[in-house]
Amino acid sequence: MFHYFPGNYMWSLAVNRALASGGMFGEINWACEGLRDASRNGPQGDNEAWHLSWLRLAKQLEDIAKDAASSGHKITARDHFMRAALYYQWAEAFLKPDDARCEPVFASHLHAFAQGAQRFDPPIEIVNIPFEGATLHGYFVAAPSASDARPAVVLSDGLDGTKEEMIYVALALAERGISTLAIDHPGQGATLRLSGLKARHDSEVAAGAALDYLATRNDVDAQRVGIVAASMGGYYAPRAAAYEKRFKACVAWGAVYDYHGIWARRFKAQPGKPISLDVTQAMGTTGDHILHILGMPDYDRALRYLEPFHLREAAKNITCDILILHGEDDKQTPASEAKMLFDSIPSSRKTMRVFTRAEGGAAHVQLDRPEPALSMLCDWLVDRL
Score class of each variant (00 low, 15 high):
Leu55Asn: 13
Phe25Glu: 02
Thr285Val: 15
Met24Asn: 05
Asp383Met: 09
Leu291Thr: 01
Glu165Trp: 06
Phe113Ile: 06
Ala190His: 13
Tyr4Thr: 06
Gln89Asp: 11
Phe355Val: 01
Leu19Ser: 05
Glu328Gly: 09
Glu165Leu: 00
Phe120Met: 08
Ala206Arg: 10
Leu61His: 07
Trp263Arg: 12
Glu328Gln: 15
His73Ala: 05
His292Ile: 03
Glu33Arg: 15
Asp157Ser: 15
His364Glu: 09
Ser336Pro: 06
Asp258Pro: 13
Glu307Cys: 03
Ala206Phe: 07
Gly22Cys: 06
Phe106Gln: 05
Pro6Val: 08
Leu385Gly: 11
Ser375Phe: 00
Pro370Cys: 00
Asp98Met: 07
Ile275Asp: 02
Met10Gln: 14
Met376Cys: 01
Val105Ser: 01
Ala84Met: 04
His310Ile: 00
His137Ile: 00
Glu371His: 15
Ala91Thr: 00
Glu337Ser: 13
Ala142Pro: 03
Gly287Gln: 06
Ala269Val: 04
Ile322Thr: 14
Asp67Trp: 07
Ala117Gly: 07
Asp121His: 09
Ile227Asn: 10
Glu244His: 14
Ile227His: 04
Asp157Met: 10
Leu173Asp: 03
Phe5Trp: 08
Tyr299Val: 09
Thr76Cys: 07
Asn8Met: 04
Leu367Gln: 11
Thr216Trp: 04
Ala362Tyr: 08
Phe342Val: 04
Asp321Ser: 08
Arg384Cys: 02
Glu359Trp: 06
Asp79Val: 03
Val141Thr: 14
Leu294Pro: 11
Asp383Tyr: 09
Leu192Asp: 00
Asp202His: 07
Val15Leu: 11
Thr135Trp: 10
Ala199Ile: 11
Ala206Pro: 09
Trp263Met: 13
Glu48Trp: 08
Phe247Tyr: 11
Gly187His: 11
Gln60Cys: 13
Phe94Met: 05
Leu159Phe: 10
Asp46Thr: 03
Val153His: 03
Glu164Cys: 02
Val105His: 05
Leu294Gly: 09
Leu136Lys: 12
Ile324Arg: 01
Ala282Arg: 15
Ala142Asp: 07
Lys163Gln: 12
Arg369Ile: 02
Gly272Leu: 03
Met10Phe: 12
Glu307Phe: 02
Ala14Lys: 06
Gly287Trp: 12
Gly72Lys: 09
Gly196Asp: 05
Glu175Lys: 15
Ala335Val: 14
Lys273Tyr: 10
Gly7His: 05
Pro308Val: 01
Lys96Arg: 09
Phe247Asn: 09
Leu159Cys: 03
Lys74Gly: 00
Asp329Ala: 15
Glu33Lys: 15
Ile262Gln: 09
Phe2Asp: 09
Ala255Phe: 12
Ala18Gln: 07
Val279His: 10
